[in-house]
Design a protein around this nucleic acid. Structure first.
Lengths: 310, 310
DNA sequence: TCGCGATATACCGAATTTGATATGTGGATT
DNA sequence: AATCCACATATCAAATTCGGTATATCGCGA
């Protein structure tokens, strides 16, 4: 399907969704009602499905319309953010280092490196995001980050990046402290299948790795699953249920400090891991002094603890 | 500034940013080089600032260009996501309940309600996001959520929503267990000002409330601040430093379970809170049966624990 | 049955956009 | 100095977009 839609079309859909009537939406957008009607018809032709159910007193979104309206809204907000940020840049706001990392290296590398950087230069502005690799590399390419610690997405053109191996990331399963499986050792993966799972979105590498490992054992995945990427939600569900949640070892270690936590990591018969991570910067990008210093701290951390984070 | 830019313009900027040369970008977009050059010129005229520094062998992004390219990339990705989701809807994927909550009510209300719902209907698809109120209500309006638990953004038209009071949200300060302030009681806010802070983004209500309270005491905020909204990053920084981090009481309670955690919540002389939360649904929206059931569980949770979450 | 309110369609003209080719300009390299 | 490469500008023609007014259509309520 070819959907070369325009922002004004997004605005129309969002306005109709918000106001419930084409005429009001048209007025808001400073269009005549027939112009709005025709624009809507063109959008629906491009989509190949109605976006609104028509009623004598107005319209309401169809299921497809809800999907479209959500995206339209995000686009409108995105344009607003762009405008704001472009204007803000005119105010000459000082640079900062903007870094991102996937969860394990966020803890294992980024946190100590930032801590060291702040020790040396307490007033630098540091902004850190934790996100999946694809989003991080996308952000890096788009100039949103100065550097990221992430996996290499497929098809990445290595020649355009500076890439430094940072290490592998192991998967552990977190449970509440008094979970039936908590005290056992060398658990097979199949032992987990009968429990509820709190698991990440389908795009997460941890989920891929876990599902692949389950597939190799022949055990079906649990049928009772709650999908969330929020660590908070995971901890909350785990804390008073028999659910299990896969996560990176570093995250698990932080949450389940031995003897001091309401959580525990399961002892598995077989290690699971996800592909290794790298410190990635975009070539040809002017690098702020602060970003250079953060990179230096990351390399120092690797030199010191390389064996620990492998 | 009026920036009525087009997606094709975004694509051009993203392509130049990616390839470094106008001619290659033009080719990728199936344009002639002069057409691309003029399109770029028009974008830069609308922006009022160059997006690229020109060099004999190509162009590279200016600071403004990096901002623009990042947003352009997000728009392009958004359009791709829209296309994918529109197509996916044709595959007839079954409905699910999509809920969102700000952090405190995510724990205090949403988690038990979802747990009850799953007990009654183990195979329903539940998706939960934790996000700020503005984003949640935006998502609700755009059809991204069936219901949310959030604060009421300014200017919200109450007549368009079903709004049910869910309670207030208290702020606590989290520290590591052996923090110098951990054992003290009735701490004044000024006692925290000398420590490092791990704090949320400027738009977060918790940050507003904390900065307002600090302003009332006359104490300046800490000059040594790390900004992150990632709970994981907060916990990591707190776990081996003397930093403090404000967060909702429910989140703090989950992390700092008494006697069992590497963290503790500070005992403050004065309670801080953020404005109350509500269960919010959009009127005129066809509600899935699962969403209705989740709403029922939320109301049941409120009826049972209303005093606890107030 | 009639009137109302809301959307849909027909028709038209004006404006804008689009993108080509041809050519100019500037910096780097040989 | 000549050449090359990459971007910028001029010119032109074609296509598309845009959005108005006028009017038709439909469902609901009185």
């Amino acid at each position: 399907m070819q959907m070369n839609l325009k922002l004004d079309q997004m605005r129309l859909i969002a306005a109709i969704a918000e106001h419930g009537q084409l005429q009001i939406a048209a007025s808001v957008l400073k269009l005549s009602q027939p112009a709005a009607s025709r624009m809507l018809a063109e959008i629906e032709r491009a989509i190949g499905s109605p976006l609104f159910d028509r009623h004598p007193k107005g319209m309401e979104l169809t299921a497809m319309g809800q999907v479209f309206a959500r995206h339209a809204h995000a686009m409108i907000v995105g344009m607003r953010d762009l405008t704001r940020e472009v204007e803000g840049l005119r105010d000459g706001r000082a640079g900062s280092v903007r870094a991102g990392a996937v969860t394990g290296p966020a803890l294992g590398l980024m946190v100590p490196a930032i801590r060291r950087l702040k020790a040396l230069a307490p007033d630098v502005q540091v902004s850190v995001d934790v996100a999946p690799s694809a989003a991080l590399v996308r952000g890096l390419m788009a100039g949103e980050y100065d550097l990221v610690i992430a996996r290499l997405p497929e098809g990445i053109r290595r020649s355009e990046f500076t890439i430094q191996l940072a290490g592998a990331e192991k998967i552990r399963f977190l449970v509440r402290r008094d979970h039936p499986l908590a005290g056992r050792t060398r658990l097979p993966l199949t032992a987990l299948a009968q429990h509820d799972w709190i698991i990440q979105d389908r795009s997460a590498p941890i989920r891929h790795a876990v599902e692949d490992a389950l597939a190799r054992t022949g055990a079906p995945p649990s049928s009772n699953v709650i999908v969330t990427s929020s660590l908070l939600m995971m901890m909350a569900f785990l804390s008073d249920s028999d659910a299990v949640a896969p996560m990176s070892e570093e995250v698990g270690a932080l949450i389940a400090q031995p003897g001091m936590s309401g959580f525990a990591m399961l002892d598995m018969a077989e290690d699971l891991s996800v592909p290794p991570c790298y410190i990635i910067e975009a070539k040809g990008r002017s690098r702020s002094a602060t970003a250079t210093r953060l990179k230096q701290q990351l390399l120092a951390e690797l030199a010191q603890n390389g064996a620990a984070f492998r």
